[in-house]
Each structure stands twice: as structure tokens, then as C-alpha cells.
Simulated assay, not measured.
Amino acid sequence: MVDLNADLGEGYGTWTLGDDAAMLAVVTSANIACGFHAGDPATLLRTCREAVATNVRIGAQVGYHDLVGFGRRFVDVTAEDLTADVIYQIGALDGLARAAGGRVSYVKPHGALYNTIVRHEAQAQAVVDAVTAYDASLPVLGLPGSEFLRRAETAGLRAVPEAFADRAYTPEGTLVSRREPGAVLHDVDEVARRVLQLVTDRTVTAVDGSEVVVDAASVCLHGDTPAAVDMALAVRELLQRHGIEPAPFA
């Protein structure tokens, strides 16, 4: 079994992004925005309700306070402020989730924050401190081998390693920057085969052709990429044809 997660609830006001309802019919975990990088209260409440209705687990996707940049720009925020920001975001989404009949059951950083805390010690610790302060029983998703997951484990949090279906990897096992060509994959069949390889062999082919070990318990299917729903369906169907049933990480 493998968990399939997607970033959802990323519309804002009259601006919509992706087909959340269709993705919720495919994935097993929903990383729902918390209003800092995307998502307004009405959108987030609706997404939480849809997740509860489809029995999809709700995760808080916390990020930098950067609506204009969609949370994909580094912010040189102090550790104290970042901890407060993350607590605020988890609490806001958890309130909406509980009003919808569910709850936040894990935390996943978004965008630039996700990539920054692969190596940035102070910000990694700030996010760990926030989750610990809010609810130390919440698992956290992150890149395998990252500073964030290392510090999460040290703090007693459950660290869940994650892989990406539609993102290119460096030979070091990190994600190719979105500023680089080819950072995001668009071929539906290629993405599905890539996920099957990740799940069965625990490896992914890097941009230089080498095979990188990626031992992940969850695979992210971005909801905002072109043909996102087609990709998600292709991934799920290929896994099921090989006897692998998607299910939330234990």
C-alpha cells in the first residue's frame, strides 16, 4: 500500500486552481492550504467538507506568508515568527476541519518552505517547534534525508518521508528547482510509470540518468499542474493493476 496525497484548497476568492473534487476521488490524503500561500476561509471550509465526505485524510499545508508569490519564494523570517505562523495556520485549518466533521491529522510544509527546511536548520527547527507546541501527535511529511525530518524525529514527532510524482530529482535526491527547465513532468504515462518504480523499487531516475534511492511512505500528486486529474487517475490505476492499493499512511 502507498499513500497518495495532493495539494488542495488553493483557490482564492473568485480565482480557482485545479479540480479539488476530482482529485479527492483519487487521493487518500489532502494537503489543504491554510490561507498563507493560498486559500480563503470559504474555499478551505468547502475543501474540508469535501475531504470528509470522501473519507480523505486532512493535512495542514503550512507555508510562508506570501499570497502573491504562492509561497514559492524564500522568506527570511525569524524562527520565532515562523513558529508562530505555523501554529496559526494549523489552528485555523483545524478549526475549519472540525467544523466540517473532521480534523487536521498531519502537517506538510508547502513550496519554498518545504525546500528551504531540507537544509535550513533554524527554519526546520521552527516548524518542528510549531507542530510540537500545537499537537505532538501529528505526523509531518517531508523530503527523505532532510534536516526537517531529522529534527522532527529527534523531537519525537512521526516523520513521514515523501516522494513526488511529477517533479524531477537531482542525483542527490532533492527536487530540481522550478526555475530550471524540466523541473515539472507533464507526460501522464511517464509519471504513472515513475510512481510505480518509486513504490516497487524505492528508486527514481534523476535528471542525469542515475537511479536515486527514495524510500517514501507517501507520494505527492500536485493538483495545480496541467492534466493533474488525468495523472492522478493514471497513477492510481497503474498501481492497482499491479496489486498496490492506495491507502493513507498508517
Score class of each variant (00 low, 15 high):
Ala136Val: 12
Leu24Lys: 01
Arg241Thr: 15
Ala163Glu: 14
Tyr169Gly: 02
Gly11Pro: 00
Ala33Val: 11
Arg98Pro: 06
Val56Met: 02
Met23Leu: 15
Asp85Arg: 03
Ala227Tyr: 15
Val104Pro: 01
Arg73Ala: 12
Pro161Cys: 01
Pro109Phe: 05
His120Phe: 14
Glu190Lys: 05
Ala234Cys: 03
Tyr88Arg: 11
Tyr134Thr: 03
Ala163Val: 13
Val107His: 06
Glu211Met: 11
Ala112Gly: 02
Thr83Ile: 09
Pro144Met: 10
Pro139Cys: 01
Asp85Gly: 03
Asp76Glu: 15
Asp224Ala: 11
Ile58Arg: 01
Ala228Phe: 15
Glu172Asn: 12
Thr83Leu: 06
Tyr169Ala: 02
Asp94Gln: 00
Val27Met: 02
Val128Asn: 05
Glu10Gln: 08
Met1Thr: 15
Met23Gln: 13
Ala217Ser: 12
Asp189Met: 11
Gln240Met: 13
Ile90Pro: 06
Val128Glu: 07
Arg150Lys: 10
Ala133Phe: 06
Tyr169Asp: 04
Asp187Phe: 15
Leu175Tyr: 09
Gly209His: 03
Val104Gly: 06
Ala228Gln: 15
Trp15Gln: 00
Tyr64Leu: 10
Leu238Asn: 07
Val68Ser: 12
Pro226Glu: 14
Ser177Pro: 00
Gly95Lys: 03
Ala183Pro: 07
Phe148Glu: 00
Gly101Asp: 08
Ala163Trp: 14
Val86Cys: 14
Tyr114Phe: 13
Asp19Tyr: 09
Ile117Leu: 07
Ser146Thr: 07
Ala92Ser: 14
Leu17Tyr: 12
Asp94Phe: 02
Val68Pro: 00
Ala33Thr: 14
Val107Met: 05
Ile244Trp: 06
Arg194Gly: 04
Arg179Ser: 15
Asp40Glu: 02
Arg103Tyr: 05
Asn55His: 15
Asp40Arg: 00
Asn55Asp: 15
Arg119Cys: 12
Pro171Cys: 11
Gln89Asn: 03
Gly39Glu: 12
Ala100Thr: 08
Ala60Cys: 03
Gly9Ser: 00
Leu185Gln: 10
Ala51Glu: 14
Asp215Ile: 02
Thr203Trp: 09
Val131Ser: 01
Gly63Cys: 11
Val52Tyr: 06
Gly63Asn: 11
Ile58Thr: 04
Val199His: 06
Arg158Lys: 10
Met1Trp: 11
Arg72Val: 09
Val107Leu: 07
Ile58Met: 04
Gly156Leu: 12
Val107Cys: 04
Thr132Asp: 11
Leu93Arg: 03
His222Val: 02
Ile90Tyr: 09
Gly182Trp: 13
Ala97Lys: 00
Val77Lys: 09
Arg236Ile: 10
Arg72Asp: 08
Pro41Lys: 08
Ala206Glu: 10
Leu141Cys: 05
Pro181Cys: 07
Val2Thr: 13
His65Lys: 10
Val235Lys: 05
Gly35Cys: 01
Val104Leu: 06
Thr47Trp: 13
Ala152Ile: 06
Tyr88Pro: 01
Asp129Arg: 09
Ile32Arg: 02
Ser137Pro: 04
Phe148Lys: 00
Gly9Leu: 01
Thr54Arg: 15
Arg194Phe: 09
Asp66Pro: 03
Gly35Ile: 01
Leu149His: 08
Val199Lys: 05
Val207Tyr: 15
Arg202Lys: 09
Ala79Tyr: 06
Arg150Trp: 02
Val140Lys: 04
Leu96Ser: 00
Ser146Arg: 03
Ser218Tyr: 03
Glu10Tyr: 09
Ile32Gln: 08
Val191Met: 12
Val229Thr: 14
Leu221Arg: 02
Ala183Ile: 09
